[in-house]
Design a protein around this nucleic acid. Sequence first.
DNA 1: AAGAAATAGGACCTCAGGGGTCCGCTTTCC
DNA 2: GGAAAGCGGACCCCTGAGGTCCTATTTCTT
Lengths: 161, 161
Amino acid sequence: MRLSKLTDYAVVVLARLEQDGAAPGKGQVQTAPGLAAATGIAEPTVAKVLKILGGAGLVEGVRGARGGYRLARTLDTVPLAQVIVAFDGPIALTACVDGGMGGCDAEAICPVRGRWDPVNDAIRNALSGITVAALAKPRFPWDLPYPANTDTAAASTLVAE
Amino acid sequence: MRLSKLTDYAVVVLARLEQDGAAPGKGQVQTAPGLAAATGIAEPTVAKVLKILGGAGLVEGVRGARGGYRLARTLDTVPLAQVIVAFDGPIALTACVDGGMGGCDAEAICPVRGRWDPVNDAIRNALSGITVAALAKPRFPWDLPYPANTDTAAASTLVAE
DNA sequence: AAGAAATAGGACCTCAGGGGTCCGCTTTCC
DNA sequence: GGAAAGCGGACCCCTGAGGTCCTATTTCTT
């Protein structure tokens, strides 16, 4: 049920990039070592996270001296689901993804085969409706335990009761 | 992002119990070896699943010869979330559960601290709104790829776009 | 032109936890 | 009293996440 730690780190790194003005286009860049120092995450790990984010098209790397990374897209256009997929693979609670064949021995007699699809869809939709920006927005004043601003309130209203 | 295999097995076992008439109350019981044969899951594993389900109050065991298990509650009163919690622990995508303190070194500077709470709530609500019965209901005719009956359709409508 | 600084892309190691099995005890029916 | 079942726990194995490091490549600076 947990997602990988790298996904968690990725959100932090993306938030930091935005906070530091490493915006899409001609913006400034941030180095991996710099981000490691700023976030408290070990430097090799930050480098790994940035490489994966680059592969997913969420950040773009600038090579060479004075290089670094900047956001490829503004965070309010990046669904959380996309980050999760980049690090954890397809979003699905069970191994039998969307009626996928093979892999499961008991497929022929399994009484719940295919039944998980709506559940997976529900999770996917929830995670697609939340942007990374909603998780990354800096807080003023600090340490509001349960901020009720519009961006995060949207996450709650994604689910009807 | 995946839940444990035992959770998956649990849903199958619960479905089988209902299908075989091991209903709450004075109903018939099913033995662990019998369920193993019926579901194709290894017998020791089925036994383990049933023990955990018993601990969670979802099935009740009848000891002694001619003993077995029966459902403690009808499946339409059991939210999927409850099964998941029994096997996977609290439902949360990240280690920092609901602003939980401790555990995370970077807590002081983490820009997304507490921000995951609405996401976790969304997942929890989605999984609480789906009953095990919706996953277990036998299908006639077999192999409808995407059944649109009321029980599972509810899962999709849990999420607004 | 040489060197420094940075990303890119792997290979590699370690280890915690899930997954599965087994054993001994207790309970209850025949 | 014996057999059949659940109950509770200990135990092992092995995958895969998590993390580190090395090398190649690129590009700026001097």
